[in-house]
């Protein structure tokens, strides 16, 4: 789409010098200050940072849920910045998958209907083989006809994961996917996300504040005060925790000042 296609062929999502400013005058809050980041195809990236660091804002901007004040965002070969509502809807429908902390399933639909909903909305039929693979991976085959209210939190989140995966989007954005789950269910979901990256080449960007969750990722990007401040490749829970501690100190000092 742009001249940079060749160079960034591997990026599933990209932010270039993204600024996000809320409000104006005295009430002005700068959430992102010139963030540039690339999220490689087939990688599991975690975005971490303390509360108010702008990690959720960055994800919302990347996913086309929120507009950027300055800079550009693109998903695959599509420039997100400047798209209208119809364009954004198409982008979300065809190129992006979401997993939310609150699961966000439709209570009126069964698990299977929830999983297939994005495809139905788009008027596409799922690839049966891939659908079977996804269902088996999330281990929901015997729960397909249940409604969300009849499923446990972990099961609901696995349905949400399956919903994101089955359409094979360019990139899946996961917002604190384990935030509402106990550690066992959380581990299941995270394993499952990591496997879908390793075995099926899915791209996932996950926002989290939990170092254990971040350790499942291939790479962790650290945000503080609206800027990328650090990065870890092949993280472990310990290295993530260490990095977080280093980040926390200046922030606390700042607040203290």
């Amino acid at each position: 789409m742009t001249a940079t296609i060749g160079r960034h062929a591997q990026a599933a999502a990209r932010a270039s010098d993204v600024w996000k400013v809320y409000g104006s005058g005295e009430a002005q809050v700068v959430a992102l200050r010139g963030v540039s980041a690339e999220f490689e195809r087939g990688q599991f990236t975690a975005i971490m940072g303390p509360s108010g660091s702008g990690k959720s804002t960055l994800m919302h901007c990347l996913a086309g849920l929120d507009s950027v004040t300055r800079g550009t965002v693109s998903i695959g070969e599509t420039t997100v910045t400047g798209l209208g509502d119809a364009g954004l809807t198409n982008l979300r429908r065809d190129k992006v998958g979401f997993i939310f902390q609150q699961f966000n399933l439709l209570p009126t639909l069964t698990a299977k209907e929830n999983i297939l909903l994005p495809m139905s909305i788009a008027g596409r039929r799922p690839d049966p083989a891939w659908y079977d693979t996804v269902i088996d991976t999330v281990g929901l085959r015997d729960r397909l006809d249940h409604r969300p209210a009849q499923l446990s939190g972990g099961q609901q989140q696995r349905v949400a994961c399956a919903r994101a995966l089955v359409a094979r989007p360019e990139v899946i954005f996961a917002d604190e996917p384990t935030g509402n789950l106990d550690s066992r269910s959380g581990a299941e979901v995270l394993n499952f996300l990591r496997n879908s990256v390793r075995e099926h080449g899915q791209t996932i960007v996950m926002v989290t504040h939990d170092p254990t969750a971040a350790a499942y990722a291939d790479r962790v990007v650290f945000l503080a005060d609206g800027q990328i401040v650090s990065e870890l490749i092949e993280p472990t829970a310990d290295t993530v925790l260490d990095t977080m501690k280093k980040l926390d100190t200046p922030v606390i000092t700042e607040v203290g000042n």
Partner: peptide
């Protein structure tokens, strides 16, 4: 509201 938001997030058009 939340459900509508979700539906819009996963690609339901305004007209839909």
């Amino acid at each position: 509201t939340r459900e509508l938001g979700l539906l819009r997030a996963i690609g339901l058009r305004r007209a839909q």
